[in-house]
């Protein structure tokens, strides 16, 4: 099953590392909320279900914006990283 790692303030509302049986990223976020409560969901998605501006999600090393976004499919050995969009440059 895919593994999820949460970092920074996002990890406050959940355990920092879990395993979920989700088929894509959107489903994974829904599953996370069921496990960890709605505050986590609100931090990650806006009221229209869009990824919030200051959140980044990676499947393995790749930003999901370069994949299929929230519809990006997950396979069992994927590692999903959810972290604040920490500015650099």
């Amino acid at each position: 099953m895919p593994k999820v790692k949460l970092y920074g303030h996002i990890a406050r509302y959940s355990s920092p590392e879990l395993t979920v049986a989700s088929r894509n990223v959107r489903e994974l976020l829904e599953d996370l909320c069921k496990l960890s409560g709605s505050r986590l969901g609100e931090l990650i998605l806006d009221s229209q279900g869009k990824l919030r501006e200051f959140i980044r999600i990676y499947v393995n090393q790749t930003d999901i914006r370069y994949l299929a976004g929230l519809e990006t499919e997950l396979s069992s050995d994927d590692v999903v990283t959810i972290m604040p969009a920490l500015a650099g440059g």
């Binding site: 970092y7 920074g8 980044r56 990676y58 090393q61 972290m83 604040p84 920490l86 500015a87 650099g88 440059g89």
Partner: peptide, 20 residues
């Protein structure tokens, strides 16, 4: 890619990555 790694170093290892 480098930025994401540095962000993780800041979050997980507590490094002072000055531009993060």
């Amino acid at each position: 890619d480098a930025n994401r790694l540095a962000a993780l170093a800041s979050l997980e290892l507590g490094w002072n990555v000055v531009n993060i």
